[in-house]
């Protein structure tokens, strides 16, 4: 990390989100941030890939249903990662479906996420690919370089790795607290704090 940080590298919102000026957020009206989320430089969120509107089939749909990417609180999107809603052919036409992240989700550098749902307290390492419509439950650790195949379901307390990813271990009882991202949140931004002991 370079020491000579430009003043105001991050935009800090009222809800505590810290979004790097160099982050690429496309279609911001379709991106929901829960607050206290860090989005680092060159991270990309494809909000433009929203569900294609089907005026005939869903007349009573809520206006909020055009959310493409929903992110909970205390998520951390590292440099160069990409969140991309999954898409498929539904009733004869192609449509994107929303990508949802829970709270305390860490996404490593260069990782591509196309899941349907990622639970809370999930750590995804660097250079990982999460395939389309994968479902990752709470307290899951995806190790660096893993490729999670499309449609895969990963139950809670799993450690997965490999290409294709498989469950290689269980999160031990003493490993739950390590998923907390409150402290990491404080270490970035325009006024970064050192990690406490």
């Amino acid at each position: 990390m370079s020491r000579k940080q430009v003043k105001g590298e991050y935009i800090e919102t009222d809800t505590g989100n810290k979004v790097a000026r160099k982050a690429v957020l496309v279609g911001t009206q379709h991106i929901m941030l829960g607050g206290k989320t860090v989005i680092q430089a060159d991270a990309m969120i494809r909000g433009d890939l929203a569900r294609t509107s089907q005026p005939s089939s869903a007349p009573g749909a809520a206006p909020g249903s055009t959310t493409a990417v929903a992110i909970g609180r205390y998520c951390f999107l590292s440099k160069g990662c990409c969140l991309r809603p999954p898409g498929r052919i539904y009733k004869g036409s192609f449509t994107y479906l929303p990508l949802r992240l829970g709270d305390h989700v860490f996404v490593g550098e260069g990782t591509v996420v196309q899941a349907a749902t990622i639970g809370s307290h999930v750590h995804i390492g660097q250079n990982v690919v999460i395939g389309e419509f994968a479902i990752i439950k709470d307290y899951v650790r995806v190790l660096d370089g893993a490729v999670v195949p499309p449609n895969m379901v990963i139950p809670s307390f799993s450690i997965v790795a490999g290409q294709p990813a498989r469950v290689v271990g269980e999160v031990p009882e003493g490993g739950h607290e390590a998923f907390e991202l409150r402290e990491l949140y404080k270490t970035v931004g325009n006024n970064p704090q050192p990690l406490p002991v």
């Binding site: 139950p155 809670s156 003493g174 739950h176």
Partner: peptide
């Protein structure tokens, strides 16, 4: 329950 990620007892040594 499978969907419940809480623990009734969890005497982890580090806590």
């Amino acid at each position: 329950k499978v969907s419940n990620t809480r623990w009734r007892i969890r005497l982890a040594a580090n806590n």
